[in-house]
Amino acid sequence: MRWSVSIVAEGDRVVNHDEVVELADAVAAWSGIASGMGSQYYGAQLVVEAEDRDTAVRRGADAFVRAAAQAGLPSWPITEVGAISEAEDQLGYLE
């Protein structure tokens, strides 16, 4: 099953445009998008295959951490994680 996983990491400085562009390039492998320009956080939404929500969150977080490292971003703590399955999204659920 396909899951959309949203993740945010917060830190102690403002993230610039080029860093978000690098993160966007890094998460593209997971049909991802990136956010955070001008904020003290960076985030991404990625699509992963998983059997259940817990596995989707774990796979999404692993991919996010690898993508952030690839983009040269600091390894800030993850402060928000959310996941919605393709089936839930079609029904209009958000968790």
Rank of each mutant, 00 (worst) to 15 (best):
S31K: 13
R53G: 00
D12E: 15
V48A: 02
R59V: 02
I84M: 11
V81C: 05
G43H: 01
D54W: 01
A69C: 02
R58F: 03
M37S: 14
G60F: 01
A28D: 10
Q45P: 01
A44I: 01
V20D: 12
A34P: 05
I33F: 11
R58A: 11
E80N: 12
Q40I: 12
D12I: 13
V14E: 15
A28C: 09
G36T: 12
L46Y: 02
V14P: 10
V65N: 03
R59Y: 04
V20N: 12
A69V: 04
I78Q: 05
A34F: 05
P74D: 07
P74T: 08
G82T: 08
A26L: 01
A61D: 03
D89C: 13
E86D: 12
I84V: 15
G60H: 00
G32P: 06
A87I: 14
E86R: 13
A63T: 00
E19F: 10
A83V: 07
A61V: 07
V21K: 15
A68N: 03
E19G: 11
H17Q: 15
A24T: 09
V20W: 10
Q70R: 08
A29Y: 08
Y42W: 08
R66L: 04
A61Y: 00
V14W: 14
L23H: 06
A83L: 03
G82S: 07
V15N: 12
L23W: 09
A67N: 00
G32H: 08
D25W: 09
V14R: 15
F64L: 02
E51I: 04
Q70H: 08
A28T: 06
V15W: 10
E88I: 06
P74N: 04
R59H: 01
V15P: 12
H17N: 13
E49R: 10
S85G: 08
S39I: 10
Y41I: 11
G32N: 03
W30S: 08
I84N: 10
T55C: 01
V27A: 06
A71W: 00
E49F: 10
G82I: 05
V27Q: 09
A29H: 07
L23M: 11
A63L: 00
A28M: 07
L46Q: 03
D52T: 02
D25I: 08
M37F: 11
Q45G: 04
R13G: 14
W76F: 10
V65Y: 00
G43V: 02
S75D: 14
N16C: 12
E86G: 06
A83D: 02
L73Q: 00
A87H: 11
L46K: 04
A71T: 01
Y42N: 05
